[in-house]
Design a protein around this nucleic acid. Structure first.
Length: 481
DNA sequence: TTTTGAGTTGTTCGA
DNA sequence: GTCGAACAACTCAAA
């Protein structure tokens, strides 16, 4: 036997929602085997409700994969990107290179867990191991249980329990990585054409490029900037839609470019116990609660958690749904929110609640319609957060939601966009209006509208539903249950 | 087992 | 303008 033949067989590191090298337990485990590494990402549009279903997330993904590849290149390796059903792709890759084990992080979406289950069996048949670890959450979902060993269904109680045990400590990126060779011909027919993740005609990503930096250092830098500059005002500032008061970390967390445990640790290291830091940590707690809840309640993403709502008489109106999606409802704050989403792939947290409440209450349209639209348009799309928050706003979720939680869009605008700056930025055709007329143009006088160059029904739509009527209709429907 | 207090982010109405 | 109460009834979590 020549020396070549005793070269060790490779192991596969399968990157999924963890596109980073920092705090990557699966990577450390793979490196610790001493086998050379094949790093792979599989673009798999076959998995229902997975992030890659969304156009905006695909745009983000292209940058994230490039960033990850660059990081791997600094270690002397690279990233193989493949496309197709992972159930076929992974076994074929493993067979092709003679891999002994596949390492990856656990996922929480039901369809992804089912796929992993099938892969465990499929790989085992070929004598290949599939080792899954927890690396995308603060704690294993089984670590946080009630005294009766049930999963928490109320956030506050969950949060108290999570705070009590704290997050798992993050781990550093490996010192060095030994890679196995990657020939250009390997699985040539299964390679992902990363260019195709980018929209070409029409190029709707211009606003996203202007809004986001997608590179390997960006997540950490945004985090540093947040803790240095924004964190102390976070408790209040985060509510104002025109301000840059939020952390804007969500897409880095969703893609896994940034580890939640690293975020937790950075906050902990600073020992900042001010209100801003506490409120921010609790927002990270909400992200965790979503992951946790989807793990314990797999149907979260497609079915009302509270079965009472199965009988809900949701309205079907393509016209209203489209108006909402396009930001043409005639309610300025809602339209501003929806247009911010469309143009930048992101929406301010409070705006999400307002837009979500408007869809599910005033329009009485099924939250799953909103969930699907956000899935397609958010760069920070996360199956768990998206589903849980839609169920929260619809009142169908884990939270014993008061049925009267119906946001009044104009009151919200008055409180959280007092100068109308947010509306004016995203609904420029109303730019010459101010005050109440900007928030409720349908109540403004023709004179005021005309002098602002606004003609309702022409330059800007009349509201597709009256706010009091919509509210009453929703109250009636919810009460009837 | 029973009881008790509480439940992310709200709105309206009347004093 | 500000403030407190009312808005159903239910489920959860812990004592």
């Amino acid at each position: 036997m020549s020396g070549r033949n005793v070269e060790r067989k490779p192991v596969i590191l399968w990157f999924r929602h963890d596109l980073r090298l920092d705090d990557h337990p699966a990577l450390l485990s793979a490196v610790a085997t001493g086998h050379p590494l094949m790093c792979v990402y599989v673009f798999d549009p076959c998995v229902e409700r997975s992030a890659v279903e969304g156009g905006a997330y695909r745009w983000w993904l292209r940058g994230a994969l490039a960033a990850l590849r660059k990081q791997l290149q600094s270690y002397g390796g690279t990233l193989l990107t493949l496309a197709g059903d992972a159930q076929d792709v992974l076994p074929r890759l493993a067979a092709e290179i003679g891999a002994v084990t596949v390492f990856a992080h656990q996922r929480v979406l039901a369809a992804e867990r089912a796929q992993d289950q099938r892969l465990v069996e499929k790989l085992a048949q070929c004598g290949i191991g599939f080792q899954l670890e927890w690396g995308t959450v603060l704690r294993h979902p089984q670590d946080i249980l009630t005294k009766d060993r049930y999963a928490y269904r109320v956030y506050t109680a969950f949060w108290k329990a999570l705070r009590a045990v704290g997050a798992e400590a993050p781990v550093s990126a490996p010192q060095e990585i030994v890679f196995c060779g990657l020939s250009a011909s390997l699985l040539a027919d299964m390679r992902l054409n990363e260019e195709r993740l980018r929209p070409v005609v029409p190029d709707w990503a211009a606003g996203m490029r202007a809004s986001w930096r997608v590179d390997g250092k960006a997540g950490m830098q945004v985090l540093e900037a947040f803790v240095n500059d924004l964190c102390c005002d976070y408790a209040k500032a985060r509510d104002y839609m025109a301000r840059e008061g939020t952390s804007r970390l969500s897409p880095y967390l969703a893609s896994g470019m940034l580890s939640p445990r690293r975020v937790w640790d950075v906050l902990a290291q600073r020992g900042d116990d001010g209100e801003g830091a506490q409120v921010f940590l609790s927002e990270l707690g909400w992200r965790e609660f979503a992951q946790y809840t989807l793990f314990h309640v797999p149907s979260l993403s497609y079915e009302n958690v509270n079965p009472k709502f199965h009988a809900m008489p949701w309205r079907r109106s393509e016209q209203d749904l489209t108006a909402w999606q396009r930001g043409q409802t005639g309610v300025p704050i809602v339209d501003a929110a929806m247009r911010q989403l469309w143009q930048t792939g992101w929406m301010h947290n409070r705006a999400r609640m307002i837009a979500g409440s408007f869809l599910t209450k005033h329009l009485l349209i099924d939250w799953r319609e909103g969930e699907a639209w956000f899935r397609d348009t958010l760069v920070d799309y996360d199956p768990a957060s998206n589903a849980m928050n839609w169920q929260w706003v619809a009142g169908t979720g884990i939270d014993a939601a008061p049925f009267f939680r119906i946001f009044n869009p104009t009151l919200q605008a008055e409180k959280f966009d007092p100068d109308g700056e947010y509306i004016r930025r995203w609904v420029p055709e109303l730019g010459a209006l101010s005050g109440k007329a900007l928030r409720e143009p349908w109540n403004a006088s023709v004179t005021v509208l005309r002098s602002a160059g606004v003609e309702l029904g022409q330059t800007y739509p009349r509201p597709i539903v009256g706010l009091p009527e919509g509210r009453e209709r929703a109250l009636g429907a919810f009460k009837a249950l």
